[in-house]
């Protein structure tokens, strides 16, 4: 696993479920073990990304919030 971001998904300003849908689309092109960064402002995204990663086997390795913008770093299963 490399610790650089392989793919970044900017989902700021998008309503549910677009942050998850765009991320699900993006991870298809990401090799296993690589990192995906997602930026989202949808307040539901914290619980949604927790549920989505649990269900798909991907892992959230970093999660921060800055001024209403949630940033998730997800390791591709």
């Amino acid at each position: 696993m490399s610790d650089t971001i392989h793919t970044s998904v900017d989902a700021k300003g998008l309503s549910c479920p677009m942050p998850i849908v765009k991320t699900a689309q993006a991870v298809k092109a990401v090799p296993a073990g690589e990192l995906i960064e997602v930026l989202a402002t949808d307040p539901g995204s914290v619980k949604d990304f927790a549920a989505w990663t649990r269900s798909t086997g991907n892992t959230i390795v970093e999660q921060t919030e800055d001024d209403g913008v949630f940033r998730f770093v997800i390791k591709r299963a």
Partner: peptide
Amino acid sequence: AVMASGAAALG
């Protein structure tokens, strides 16, 4: 569309 795409994102 939201329910469908959310489910699709979960595979």
